[in-house]
Amino acid sequence: MRSWILVPADKEKALGQVAGSGADVVVVDLARAASNEAKQHTRLAARDWLSSHREQVVSARRFARWARIGPISSPQWRDDLAAAMEGAPDGIVLAECAGTDEVQQFAAGLYESENRIGVRSGSTKIIPELGGNPAAALHLKPFAEELHPRIVGLGWDAAALARSMGAQRMRGPGGLWSDALAYVRGQVLLAAHAQGLQVIEAPFRDTRDAEGAQRAALAARADGFTGMMAVHPSQVEAINSAFAPSQDEIAEARELIGMFSLNPGAETLPFRGRHVGYKELSRAKALLGED
């Protein structure tokens, strides 16, 4: 899944238009802080959108439906989760995740919600957003080790980290990430690849700079990210284009998959001068849309 578009659940117009954005994944954002009264309206809007788009016309471009919930430190996350789960989303982006213990706590809430609404247990996936504050940013190693089975990818929240440090910028000359943010970005990228997971680049926030957004998407793809978050429909095409596989990559993926099909049960195989295993096979299948 290349393009992920984040749409605030409290923005009625944006929510009404996002299905036609061309994104692979629509993420309905419930993580924005608001009063209890405003939250009630937001939860209903998110539930209704997720429910109404659960059945998609086969001839139309299909997209996955996710919700963004959290952080766990917020007293509102359980009610937000309960509302989103009534729409049976494909997965949850866990905002400002501070550690693997928070994933465990959140997953327990997911199990309860799935059982309550009759969704298959364990079917709702999680992508935690990591390194949202300095303390969390310095404790990312556990995410490169054994993880909860619901986790299918990792992301990071550059804006949250910058706010927590009082930083006056996120990017420097040439559009490069500032040092602290680049450090977290690299750690999240490495942790995801260590686990063979998807890894989602943080969004390019300046919706007026189309060229900058395109450069950011191309850089994310070149650095090893598997997808990127958008904050406006105008950014989706650039992300889809940047992450589209080349003909050489498609040919290599087919060759690798073919080798494993001819050698059932093999854990590793020699391939083009290197040894490959299940992680490489999974990436090849994902690239061809066979995951």
Rank of each mutant, 00 (worst) to 15 (best):
G87Q: 06
Y111L: 14
D291Y: 10
G166K: 11
D248F: 07
R221I: 04
R283Y: 11
Q195W: 00
Q235E: 08
H148I: 09
Q56N: 13
L6R: 08
Q168A: 00
A23D: 15
A19G: 10
A95S: 15
F143R: 04
S178N: 14
Q168Y: 00
G212Q: 08
S261T: 06
A244C: 10
G70D: 01
G109H: 02
G22P: 08
M170N: 08
V152Y: 04
F271K: 05
G224L: 12
V119R: 12
A202E: 02
G175Q: 03
G172T: 14
Q17D: 14
I92E: 00
S121L: 13
M1C: 07
H232I: 05
F225A: 12
L6W: 05
G265A: 04
E237M: 02
A220C: 05
R116C: 02
D29W: 00
A108H: 05
A88M: 07
R205G: 07
L44M: 11
D48M: 10
L50W: 01
L197V: 09
V231S: 01
E37H: 04
G166P: 13
E280S: 14
A244W: 06
K285C: 06
A84K: 00
R78K: 06
L218I: 13
D10K: 04
L44I: 11
S35P: 04
A160H: 10
V28L: 03
A167Q: 11
H232R: 08
Q198D: 11
L197R: 06
K285S: 08
V18M: 04
A107Q: 10
P128T: 00
M170F: 03
R43F: 14
G289N: 03
G186K: 15
R169M: 13
A34N: 04
A60Q: 09
D101M: 09
R32V: 13
Q56Y: 12
Q214L: 05
D157F: 07
D24P: 03
S246T: 15
D223Y: 05
A144K: 03
K13Q: 11
R78V: 03
A14D: 14
G99W: 01
S113A: 13
V199N: 01
V58I: 10
A38F: 07
V27I: 15
E211N: 10
S121Y: 06
P142E: 09
D101N: 13
M259D: 07
E129R: 14
L176H: 15
G118P: 05
V188P: 02
E145L: 10
G22C: 09
A251W: 01
R32D: 07
L218V: 15
M85A: 11
A19D: 13
Q198H: 12
D157W: 06
I250N: 02
A216C: 09
V57T: 09
L147Q: 07
A45V: 04
A242M: 03
M228E: 14
R163H: 15
D80K: 02
S123E: 14
R254D: 11
I5A: 05
P71N: 12
A182L: 12
G70T: 07
F260N: 05
L189V: 06
L81S: 08
G16K: 06
